[in-house]
Nucleic acid binder design. Structure first.
Lengths: 365, 365
DNA sequence: CTGAAAGCGCTTACAG
DNA sequence: CTGAAAGCGCTTACAG
């Protein structure tokens, strides 16, 4: 049974204890902690050693009372991000906030009416800046409302950030190009594409990337193999039913997100079309569902946790600048995506075999 | 473009401003904010009015430098919670922390070795208490390690909390009873059950609840209709393949969590067994997948966000008590679950029709 | 019941 | 480059 934390005296260890131990002033310790350049190497080393020896850890709350940058309050205003998208962002943002002494406020809203209430609650709590994850990142009314309230905004994972707001995102176009090239390299020629909902800006970019890569490889994009979706599992179900009942169907399906890719796999399974043997399927985003189902989905990983961290860092800097009356300059940052190869994709079925078997049984329809 | 937040002067408003406005001392304002009883009604009202008028909001960071309860650091040590489970817990915990001035630290670990490192990192940051979400909540080694380190532990969503730790959970047994009764009320008699992994304590309780409710209704539990699972989608796939190829199969399948229920629906779909017309399927937990697929899954909702909030409140109180040298008394709290009726369940097919059709086509096999 | 004082652990701004 | 002083916004502990 825990009594009075013994190992964890750190709770009471202050900068002054370290200073005494190192034989310097508290200011020097503070400078070392803050990586200030104005400390000579020997002193710095002494301080570092004392920090180690005492197992000192900074009290963020105390720092927050003074620092301009820290102590800032960052709000996350979310509506209904595709399940699992928010989680990683939250983890990253939280981590960075506790590191930098910021405070994270969370507010949910649904309609545009509830948005006003949510923003009011946030301003009442004194938010200094707001992060907009998808789909709110693409809502111009929301952005405008926040701008009128004088609150810096950061759009997360949007493909077309308004020039006046900050943004952290990946290059959706390039991601789709990479995935398409990958499928082509596996030998696929008849590649179908399931679009995302048109209100989400990444949808268009991903489709454009697909078309671009196909064209660059000298492959035609068969309009029959391009179908609409809305990022939901159910829309994926419908799209897959259509694509997999085509006479001259695809050997690979590129779904605009993982939820729809999961639906494709379910439908294929139902039609006794084996993934990836008969049909390759890939998604986008790398949300939890991509590795929760079987086979796991080949997808483009968005570094959501890192994006959350970066969003916090960016906003904290902007808030500091604003507080010191520097001009507001929105930052737009592109992060790297990664193609994650999993079980849902494989080399295209041998074409010769395909022809030999004619319209026979085991081939994808 | 945001300049110098105008509406949001709150960032600079202090307790002293309120005191001046109300014509009282800062201490009185502090007491009002902290709901201290020792303030006379007229004074309290004056202060409240000033808070409203100035739109004042408390600076948690500053409070943290003094208060015992607040400023505490609560760690969440997680490994691989079923996708989507962690998200809501995080949202709730975060919300409560910012309300109560606590600080949330997040640490991930995988193996038992990485656990030691994670705990070390947390203690280095000065955690005062740790929350263990599933599956770590059921890991006795982890709990023991933390107890040896003198850190209060709260097990989240475990079915059998060790008596020495705090816990926040639902009654898994009662949840399974409710779900089973619901299926029986829909007219189902041949109800299959897919177990969860035996290392997770809720698995057993849920199975017991199922058996109990069946027995209470005078229904036999057919051992052929009880099969193993491990909470993963893939294990659900296997279980469903088995159950749905039985000669005298079930009319309803109760899966021990939503991931497995989702797998059942996928397999059923593949076999042209319609859900819910031919087969009712239900899950447990109400994780995002339950409402992400189609049909949406009838399930037992665990109030994960509320559980996160309660965990923080509980731990913050325990930490305060510990700091004031009061004896440590672990609290074990049961929260209410809710049966959420969605599209995956319906009344059992008419039994007469069933017999009439014999082994014919459209019936569930 | 109310308030003046001191202090939480850190940083800013000012000296040297 | 280093340090002594003052202060961040709040609360504890002490008076009255």
């Amino acid at each position: 049974m825990p009594r009075k934390a013994k190992t964890t005296e750190s709770a009471t260890l202050t900068i002054h204890d370290v200073a005494r131990h190192a034989g310097v002033s508290s200011m020097t310790v503070s400078r070392v902690i803050n990586k200030n350049v104005n400390v000579r190497e020997p002193l710095r080393e002494k301080v570092m050693a004392s920090i180690k020896a005492l197992n000192y850890s900074l009290n963020m709350a105390a720092r927050s009372t003074r620092a301009g940058l820290s102590g800032a309050r960052i709000g996350i205003l979310y509506s209904t991000p595709s399940a699992g998208f928010l989680n990683d962002i939250l983890v990253g943002a939280l981590e960075q906030c506790s590191r930098m002494g910021g405070q994270l406020l969370l507010e949910q809203c649904s309609g545009i009416a509830s948005q006003k209430t949510a923003v009011k609650r946030l301003t009442a709590q004194g938010v200094d800046a707001i992060i907009l994850p998808p789909p709110l990142c693409d809502s111009e009314p929301t952005v405008r409302m926040l701008q009128r309230a004088g609150i810096p905004v950061l759009a997360l994972a949007t493909a077309h950030p308004l020039p006046e707001v900050s943004a952290v995102r990946i290059d959706d176009f390039a991601g789709a190009v990479a995935m398409t090239r990958y499928l082509i390299k596996l030998g696929h020629r008849r590649i179908a594409f399931i679009k995302g909902s048109p209100e989400h800006t990444p949808s268009g970019e991903r489709y454009n990337g697909f078309v671009d890569a196909m064209t660059a490889a000298g492959l035609a994009v068969d309009p029959l193999l391009v179908t609409d979706g809305t990022f939901t599992y159910q829309s994926g179900l419908q799209a897959a039913e259509y694509l997999l009942s085509l006479d001259n169907g695809p050997t690979a399906i590129f779904a605009c997100n993982d939820d729809m890719a999961a639906a494709v796999i379910a439908v294929a399974h139902g039609k006794r079309i084996f993934v990836p043997e008969d049909l390759s399927v890939c998604g986008f985003d790398d949300t939890p569902v991509a590795s929760a189902i079987w086979p796991q989905i080949t997808t483009i990983h968005q570094p959501k946790a890192a994006m959350g961290r970066t969003a916090i860092t960016t906003l904290l800097e902007e808030v500091r600048d604003l507080k010191s009356d520097k001009p507001y300059r929105p930052q737009q940052i592109k992060m790297k995506f990664t193609l994650i190869e999993r079980g849902s994709t494989a080399t295209a079925r041998d074409l010769k075999l395909f022809r030999t078997m004619g319209e026979g049984g085991i081939l994808p329809r």
